[in-house]
Design a protein around this nucleic acid. Structure first.
Lengths: 337, 337
DNA sequence: CTGTTAGCGCGTTCAA
DNA sequence: TTGAACGCGCTAACAG
């Protein structure tokens, strides 16, 4: 048996398709008698307007897209991502929208963008280049970038990464640490190429340099390593650093990596300080009190969705949205002895 | 400026719309010369086929829907849900599909189902009644229920909740605990009405009864309270129980609730055992070693998506899929003194 | 084998 | 209150 369509209702009642459509969307356009007859028939035939046909006709999708920069297994493992998703979904819910999670299609982010049936896209940690911009322009689809490198005029949501990183390292230096290992993010995770000066990684490195200046130090005085944001990669990074020489403190750009490092320190029973970045424990249910820079993924998600809805509605929205961050004192950053 | 459509390519090349469509979808159907000319023109005009029009024409959506049983702020806060989502998204990614997260529409799950533009739906902790089933039948949309009450023949994925709960409480009883507080799930979270005998809550209670039988006890010998699966509600539940009388052990149906309880016990410096259910810490980054029943949300998500894809492809799939669970020994269940 | 015409899917909306 | 066109790509059927 086929779906009941608007035509079936029209046939059954003797009214036209147009009348049926009006009965649902603008009842005042036709007589009460007609509306009643049509709704009754619709009820009897279990009629449900086909959402896809409806959206196609209206030129809307009723969904925002969240584009995953990497594979699902990797990206959705990060609790920071999860809170961003929650923030986006919260705003979608208010607007009667759904949230479409878009994995790379055949390993290609570009392909995914071409095929997404959404009204707008939110990215996280992606370099928005001419290539991507071109596709979105052709598709007339607005975009908001969270934590991304922007090669163009693009709406973005982030914290002041440079300032936050400066604060993070300053706290470490204040505690007397000098032999510090910085575990950075992979260059390709938050920017396609290392030379994107406005990438999150580079902004934070700039912040680190500023913090070091006060102590007449520079980045080259520290060990800098980068690794993917997984527990396992954090553990590997810790071992790599420790095999060379024990630092007095690990400064990371991600809580997840920090947790990985702590895992190793725990195994080896080492008392070395660790500082994170993201503050996932606050919003989730982590009970280890990691010292970290807290930025609200939830808030980033909400703000980006709000900006995106403005763009979809054709309204103006600020090009840059900065959200607050804070230093969260835990128990993992200690004074040097 | 308008989008480039298939017609524009046809006009520019002198070929028909059909030829253009063939050039993209069945290049072998027309001459090489034609294909080249068309692709070249498409390239020059930055043509991208409109995914919505394409899907509409093909009668597909290229997306699976995950229906949230409650509001986003609540549902997506649970790390267990997050791992289920990850599992679903992983399989979607393999199939070149997206994952549509569907919040209740205007607070109505029913409305959300009517409007979702997806090829199939996965639910979690929802009672699938005639009402929902009817809509999905009319929309010809397959469904797979995770942890739900089934009023009908519906494909489901879950663990053996009765057996798992029996194991959970048995471990507690073996340790000598007799004054036990069971913190159950809210009846309306995992079943609309309390009398759904096949709801997760009821299955687990049945398991508890079996465990108690061996000690000639019954559920009425324990205190049973239910609360929502949030940290805060867990804390409230703990205080309610403690105000009355201190138990020697809290047995919960959710890790999140267990974490809330531990928070309170920590505050009051009480040494009372706590046992969880879900095992979220294993897949995420929790470092508190909670004693819990581990069930893989990720696996549930994957299995349900696989079953759903089978149904979408018109293949047969087992009505019930059981996935494994395990008792995870942590440090929070101690011998009674 | 190559290419075209025409119609479909389904609900919305303009012009009458 | 309605017929017809529309949105856009797909495809059965047909002609050369």
């Amino acid at each position: 048996m086929k779906r009941t369509t608007i035509q079936d209702i029209a046939d059954k009642t003797g009214y036209s398709k147009t009348a049926v459509s009006f009965a649902f969307n603008s009842p005042s356009r036709i007589s009460k008698k007609a509306v009643e007859a049509i709704l009754k028939a619709a009820e009897e035939l279990d009629y449900i307007p086909d959402p896809m046909a409806r959206n196609f006709s209206l030129g809307k999708h009723m969904s925002l897209g969240f584009l995953l920069p990497q594979r699902v297994e990797y990206t959705l493992m990060n609790p920071y991502m999860q809170s961003v998703i929650r923030g986006i979904a919260t705003v979608c819910q208010e607007h009667g929208y759904t949230l479409t999670v878009i994995p790379p299609l055949h390993s290609s982010v570009i392909e995914a963008i071409k095929n997404a049936t959404v009204d707008g896209i939110i990215t996280l940690g992606l370099t928005i280049d001419k290539n991507i911009k071109g596709i979105l322009r052709q598709r007339q689809m607005p975009i908001v970038a969270i934590d991304g490198s922007l090669k163009d005029e693009i709406h973005s949501v982030s914290i002041d990464d440079e300032e936050a990183a400066q604060l993070q390292l300053s706290k470490v230096l204040e505690k007397g640490h000098r032999d510090i290992a910085i575990i950075s993010l992979p260059d390709d995770a938050y920017s396609k190429r290392t030379d994107e000066t406005d990438s999150v990684v580079n902004k934070r490195k700039k912040g680190y340099m500023k913090a070091l200046e006060k102590y007449s130090m520079s980045l080259s005085d520290l060990r800098v390593l980068s690794c993917a944001t997984t527990l396992q990669d954090g553990m590997d990074a810790a071992r790599t650093i420790l095999n060379e020489r024990k630092p007095t403190c690990f400064v990371t750009m991600s809580d997840v990596v920090a947790f990985g490092i702590m895992e190793v320190l725990n195994e080896l029973d080492l008392d070395i300080s660790v500082v994170g970045f993201d503050g996932v424990e606050i919003e989730d249910f982590h009970t280890t009190r990691l010292t970290t820079i807290h930025q609200s993924g939830n808030e980033k998600g909400k703000q980006s969705a709000k900006v995106l809805f403005s763009l979809i509605d054709g309204e103006k929205a600020p090009l840059k949205t900065l959200i607050p961050y804070s230093f969260n004192e835990g128990v993992t950053l200690k004074e040097t002895i």
